[in-house]
Simulated scan of single mutants.
Amino acid sequence: MLEEVKKSLENSPIVKKGEYNYFVNPISDGVPAMNPKMLRELSLAVHKYADLDVDKIVAVEAMGIHLAAALSLATDVPFVVIRKRQYGLEGETQVYQKTGYGSSNLYINDLHAGEKILLIDDVVSTGGTLIALIKTLKDLGLDIKSTVAVIEKGKGKEIVEAATGVDVLSIIKLDITDGKVVIEKTIDD
Rank of each mutant, 00 (worst) to 15 (best):
M1A: 14
M1P: 15
L2F: 09
E4I: 09
N11I: 03
S12Y: 00
K17T: 05
G18F: 00
Y20F: 15
V24P: 01
V24E: 05
P26L: 13
I27M: 05
D29T: 09
G30M: 05
G30Y: 03
G30P: 02
A33T: 14
P36M: 09
P36H: 10
L39V: 11
R40W: 14
R40P: 08
R40V: 14
E41S: 08
L42Q: 07
S43E: 11
S43L: 11
A45Y: 07
V46T: 13
A50R: 04
L52E: 10
L52D: 11
D53Q: 12
V54Q: 04
V54C: 08
D55N: 11
D55A: 08
K56Q: 12
I57T: 12
V58A: 13
V60F: 10
M63T: 15
L71N: 07
S72M: 13
S72E: 12
S72Q: 13
T75D: 12
P78E: 09
P78A: 11
V81I: 15
V81C: 08
I82K: 03
I82V: 11
Q86V: 10
L89Y: 08
E92L: 02
Q94Y: 05
Q94I: 09
Q94V: 11
Y96N: 14
K98D: 07
T99R: 07
G102V: 03
S103K: 14
S104W: 09
L111H: 04
A113M: 00
E115Y: 03
K116C: 03
K116H: 05
L118I: 13
L119A: 06
I120M: 09
I120E: 07
D121W: 05
V123P: 02
S125K: 04
T129Y: 05
A132Q: 04
A132N: 06
L133G: 06
K135R: 13
L140Y: 01
K145D: 03
K145G: 02
V148L: 00
A149H: 01
K153R: 09
G156E: 00
G156H: 00
I159M: 04
E161D: 07
A163D: 02
T164R: 05
V166W: 03
K173S: 12
D175M: 13
D175G: 14
D178H: 15
G179P: 10
V181D: 08
V182W: 07
K185Q: 12
T186M: 08
T186I: 10
D188M: 11
D188A: 11
